[in-house]
Simulated scan of single mutants.
Amino acid sequence: MFADLISRLTQPEPAQLPDTDARLALTALLVRIARSDGRYDAGERARILSIVESRYRLSRVEAEALRADAEALEGEAPDTVRFTRAIKDAIPLEERIGVIEAMWAVVLDDGRRHGEEDALMRLVASLLGITDQDSNAARLRVAPQ
């Protein structure tokens, strides 16, 4: 089902993704961070649903379909480096901090930070051109009070 998108993601110089594919890739990255600690619970799924509804102005049904497709894509997707590069190419630098905020919201949803999540956040932020300081500021903005 996702063979064409995965093929484009794994090209040495992937072309910029169309908007629908960029949405799917970003949502799959949210699923990847949620799964990185070995748990993918209802709270994380709900958080991802809320993020994509808001970010893309989708109905609940559309957001659920996007999340379901993203869950399937994440399982088949290439390594995080190539996966993130495609997102970097699709999203301007000034909007990438929003990607980091969304990822931190998913990480912090269960009230705990796990080493696997922190490591993946550092990798993704770096690959997206976001500094550790900006990533930390994004985390503080979305952390529950």
Rank of each mutant, 00 (worst) to 15 (best):
E95L: 14
H114W: 03
L108W: 07
D69G: 07
L73K: 01
D89G: 15
V99N: 04
R96L: 02
E71L: 04
D132G: 12
D69A: 15
V106I: 07
D132M: 11
A86C: 13
A63W: 00
A65K: 04
H114Y: 08
G115N: 11
V107E: 01
V99R: 03
L120I: 12
F83L: 11
A105I: 07
R112P: 01
E101T: 12
S135L: 03
R113D: 04
E116C: 03
D109N: 11
L123P: 02
G98R: 04
I87S: 05
V124W: 06
A86M: 06
L108V: 07
I100T: 05
E64S: 13
V61H: 08
K88G: 09
E117I: 09
A72I: 15
A90H: 11
L128K: 01
G129C: 12
T84G: 10
V106C: 03
E117Q: 02
D79T: 12
V61L: 06
P78F: 13
S135I: 05
A125M: 09
I87T: 07
V106T: 01
A68D: 10
E116M: 08
E95M: 15
L128W: 06
I91H: 06
A72P: 02
H114R: 01
E101V: 14
V61P: 00
A68Q: 11
Q133K: 09
R67P: 02
V124S: 06
L66F: 15
L93R: 14
R112C: 01
V61C: 00
D89P: 09
E71D: 09
L123M: 10
V107P: 00
E76Q: 13
R113T: 10
D109I: 14
I97E: 00
V61S: 05
P78L: 08
D132L: 13
I87R: 01
A86E: 02
V61R: 04
A119H: 05
G115R: 10
G115A: 14
D118A: 13
L123H: 12
A102V: 11
D134I: 06
T84Q: 07
R67W: 09
K88P: 03
A77C: 10
R139Y: 04
S126T: 12
K88H: 14
L108I: 12
A86P: 08
G111N: 04
L128Y: 04
L73G: 00
W104A: 00
I97G: 01
A77V: 11
A102C: 11
R113V: 13
E71I: 15
T131P: 00
G75L: 12
R113W: 04
H114I: 05
D89N: 15
A72L: 14
V106R: 02
I87G: 02
M103N: 03
E64R: 12
I91G: 02
E101D: 08
I97F: 08
G98E: 08
L123V: 07
A125T: 08
L120H: 02
R82E: 12
I97L: 11
L123W: 11
A119F: 14
Q133D: 06
S135P: 02
A86N: 09
D132C: 10
M103Y: 12
E117M: 04
A70P: 00
V107F: 08
L120W: 05
V61G: 03
A125N: 07
E76M: 13
R122Q: 10
V107W: 08
T84M: 06
V124N: 05
